[in-house]
Structures are given as structure tokens and as C-alpha cells.
Design a protein around this nucleic acid. Sequence first.
DNA 1: GTCTATACAGGGATAGAC
DNA 2: GTCTATCCCTGTATAGAC
Lengths: 208, 208
Amino acid sequence: MSNSLEKPNKCVDAVDRVLAAAENLFATCGYDAVSISAIAEKADVSKANIFHHFQSKRQLYVSVLKAAAAHSHKLLMGLEETESGFTDRLLELTRGQLGNYLSHPEKSKLLMREVLENTSDDEIQLLKDDFARNFSRVVSLIKKGQAAGELRSTVDPALVTTTILASNIFYFRTRHHLLELSEVNFASDPDTYISGMMDLLLNGMVNH
Amino acid sequence: MSNSLEKPNKCVDAVDRVLAAAENLFATCGYDAVSISAIAEKADVSKANIFHHFQSKRQLYVSVLKAAAAHSHKLLMGLEETESGFTDRLLELTRGQLGNYLSHPEKSKLLMREVLENTSDDEIQLLKDDFARNFSRVVSLIKKGQAAGELRSTVDPALVTTTILASNIFYFRTRHHLLELSEVNFASDPDTYISGMMDLLLNGMVNH
DNA sequence: GTCTATACAGGGATAGAC
DNA sequence: GTCTATCCCTGTATAGAC
């Protein structure tokens, strides 16, 4: 019982410890830079034990990826869509998405790597499907906003969606570097960033 | 002479062939996934020859990186700043930046990898300095636009810059995936994308 | 400068005892 | 399920001939 606070936590299954260690290492170092030995050491199991539970390094990686994808899918489905106006719904959706990235940085990094690189592996097609669904969700929200007359019909919904997604991912991945830029004061405050970005996207930067 | 069209081109120095092969492989596969053997084969030299010209794999990588940074720096400095209004200058700067990415995809991928990951290696500090300079350049352009009253003073110049940079990088890196999304019709046409994005950032999406 | 041959470490993966 | 011991391959890097 007193061991339950140790790291690695021996109270959880070895398999789960391996998955956790692998997720952590793959996320921070990338697939090739991580060795089975490193994962074994971090999870406090033997190399052979890993190969007992997972066919190969690649298959372990895919397992980690699928778990992350499932987790991310649940989070996305859980994002509340308030019944207020379209702009507020879009704001909340965007804020929620970035919040998910920031609360689960390792899973997010893992998934982004796969979506950003073009590995075109059949096993991870479901990641892209998830990405596409998420994309469509925002697109249709914007289309509804246009149909309701709240949003300009001359902007391309897919382009707006791309810009939002790009901003969120870029902010998440480069926050550390942005902190070092003297002009940037929103690097440590995601809420400020989201508010500012949405104001920009909604109202534009031109003086009318 | 008739050999001058072969691949790899034996008419160029072995060192240059190695650098070219390394750039290509590092850009597409990442540092860890590339072996000296693979570079040697692609450059049509022996492994030992590579180690004769470069102290280590890491040092070869840094050499490739520095060459790419120098090249990119020249391109950036060459970006014309037209003497028209601020919005036009911003549009041209943005278009030029994305154009540079697309014309030199391998160098761009290499540099982006280093800026997006946080390796914090002293040897590549110059990459970050370059990035910061480029960032500041856009920021000050926007500030001038605000001072001139052409742009709203309530938007954060650094935030606009971040959004533009994010959009360009994201577009460059995910164009392939965007092609598969039925809602997206700008994936194969960078000019359309840039025009749409800048219209969005300048005028916003709200119906006024 | 370029090669062949080789040293040596570490990688993924397996065998077999417990 | 978990381990120790081991296999074989590939990786980086070096030695030394040409």
C-alpha cells in the first residue's frame, strides 16, 4: 500500500506500465529514438516481458497510438456545445480543443506526429478518419452560422477550420519557444491566446 | 559529359553529393531513422568516406542544417517589400514565405523540425535567432500598420504573426492530407489559400 | 580522397527456466 | 507472466591500403 506512490507504480499491471512508459518516450523522443530497453527500464520490466505482451516494437507503438486515439475521441465527443450563438459555440469548441491538447500533451504529440507526417500506414487510417470527423464538425458548425446569417458567406468554412486547427496545434507545439520572444505575452496564458485569436478571426484586423 | 545527367551526379564533389543525400533523407525520415549507410548509398560513396569528411553523424546533420538555414536566410532577406499599403505588404510577405516553403520543401521540413521540437541544442541556436528575426519583422510591419491607422490597434501584433506563421506551416505540412478532405478545395492551390486566409485575417468572418 | 575490412556497441527479437 | 541469457543484425566509427 505504501508502494502505491512509487514511480513506476507497481500496483498497476505491467502491461499498463509498459504502455505508459512507451507513450511517454515515444511522445517526447519519437519512434526511432526510443529503444525497447529504454521502455523496459522506465516501466521496470524486462525486455523479454515486453515482447511477451507485444509482438513487436511497431505493434507496441500502434497499441499506444490506438489508446491515445480512443482517449482523444472520447474527449472530443465530450466537448459541450452550448446552445448560445455560433460565435460562442465556436469559441468554446476551440478553447476545448486546445484545452485537451494541454491537459494531455503526450497523447496529443503522438497523434499530431502521425497526422502531420505522411506515413500512410493502413493501421493508423482510423487516426485520419478521426481527424476528418473532427474537421467536418467544425466546418458544419461554421456553415450553420453562415446559413443563419451570423457569419459572412464569402469566407470558406474549410479555410477557417484549417486556420483554427493550425493555430491551436502551432500554439501547443511552440509555446516553449514563444515564451522567449519578447513581443509575445500570451505564451503562458492559453485563454488569452484563444480569446485574442478568435477575436481576430471573427472581426479581422482592418480598421473599419 | 554524358554522365552529367546521371543520378547521383558524379560531376559534383563527393562532399556535396553527401550533403544533398543527407538533406533529402533527414528531411523525409528524420535524424534517427537515417543511417550513414543509406546516405552513403544514395550519394554513391563509401561509409568511410563520409566519416573522412564529417566527424560524426551528428556533425553531418548540423552541417546540413546550417546550410539550410543560410539558404533560408537569403530567401527571407530577398522577399520584396512593396511600397504599397500595409495590407498588401503583409499579403506579399505571407505569400512569399509560403512560396519559399513550397519551393524548398526539404530544407523547410528540416528547419521546421528543429524549431518545432525543443531540442535546445547550442549548435542550432542560430536557427532560433533567425526564426525570432523573421517573427519580429512581421510584428513590426503590423505595428506600423496600426500606427498608420490602417489596422485596428486592439489586435495583438504578435498574435497575428503567430497565426500567419501557424497557418503557413500547417498548410505546408498537411497539404497532402487536406487533399483528401472533401470540404477543402484549396489544398492544391497555395495562392487561393493565401488569399482566402488573408481575407479572413483582415476582414474577419462576422457579418457586419 | 577514396576505398575494403573490421571493431565494437546497441538494437530487436527468441529460447527456455521459473 | 516474468525473468536471464543469448542470437543475429545493423549502426557508428576506425584502421590502414591505395
